[in-house]
């Protein structure tokens, strides 16, 4: 039982990162109807920026805030410069754009900061929480920060005019434009927020997996899985999906004998595909009806 609780908590801690990544993916998906394959690399880049700031002597929280702000601006810049001109291109051309962005950021990270693995500080400490071995300070901090961020986002989308405008622009761009919402800028804002959320996720996971240009590759896979599992049309679902994937991965690795450790990723993905068989648009996804 002790082991079960421990594994579930460890799964939740990793799941918090997957949930953040999934959320960022859903943010861009809502804005442009496409999966952002470069999400992980954007987050890694942001984390490197934070690392550099801390190296220059900026305190952790100042660097944190600064990085989030810079990432927000960077996300908007990427939308304006790269994806705005591709607005009308076929959907698969956009995909090449994402892969190109992925390649550029990944290789750029390596060029600027080289490929050696770097440690990243945590403000929460690594002492076991409440004197037990269940959860350490950083894991608890990760879950806490994720929860706060989710709360803020929920408030933003439900309680502010801008949030409402963004939802309108995503749900029905034509009508939104008719009532005076600047849909193009809402898209850019979605990109900026996705980049900022990604940055938070990157900075939270870096102390655990260490910082290098390929840090987010594995995380991105789980983030995607979480987003799709929860349903790409539902931000709350994406967060649930992210946590679920973390727990499934952790439990599969521990409790399935013989194959568990080697094939944990495979098993996690199998579970997801199995869930999709039953719910083809994700657990919380809307079914889109089409007209003939």
């Amino acid at each position: 039982m002790q082991l079960l609780i421990q594994e579930v908590l460890a799964g939740l801690a990793n799941g918090a990162i997957y949930a953040l990544t999934a959320l960022a993916i859903v943010m861009v998906f809502q804005a442009i109807d496409h999966l952002n394959f470069a999400q992980g690399e954007m987050a890694t880049f942001s984390t490197f920026v934070a690392w550099q700031l801390i190296e220059w002597g900026v305190t952790y929280w100042a660097a944190f805030v600064l990085t989030v702000a810079l990432s927000f601006a960077g996300g908007i810049a990427i939308e304006r410069v790269l994806f705005r001109p591709l607005h009308k291109a076929p959907i698969l051309a956009l995909l090449v754009g994402f892969i190109a962005l992925f390649s550029i950021l990944n290789s750029g990270d390596g060029y600027i900061w080289n490929y050696t693995i770097k440690t990243f500080p945590t403000p929460f400490g690594t002492a076991p929480l409440f004197g037990s071995a269940l959860l350490d300070g950083h894991q608890a901090g990760m879950i806490g920060v994720t929860a706060v961020l989710l709360g803020l986002l929920y408030f933003f989308f439900r309680g502010t005019r801008l949030g409402l405008a963004m939802r309108a622009a995503a749900a029905n761009p034509e009508s939104a434009r008719l009532v005076g919402i600047r849909v193009g800028w809402m898209t850019a804002l979605g990109w900026g927020m996705a980049a900022a959320i990604g940055a938070v996720g990157g900075m939270l996971i870096a102390p655990i997996v260490f910082l290098d240009p390929n840090m987010m590759l594995g995380v991105l896979i789980y983030g995607f899985s979480g987003a799709v599992l929860g349903g790409l049309t539902s931000p709350g679902g994406a967060v649930f999906g992210g946590f679920a994937v973390g727990v499934i991965e952790s439990l599969a690795g521990t409790f399935i004998p013989y194959v568990g450790r080697d094939l944990n990723l495979t098993i996690a993905l199998l579970v997801i595909v199995a869930v999709l068989m039953v719910r083809p648009t994700g657990i919380f996804g809307r079914t889109v009806a089409s007209r003939v």
């Binding site: 892969i99 190109a100 962005l101 992925f102 390649s103 550029i104 990944n106 290789s107 750029g108 390596g110 060029y111």
Partner: peptide, 8 residues
Amino acid sequence: GLAGVVYG
């Protein structure tokens, strides 16, 4: 060093 950037 910048192969990935050029490719992208």
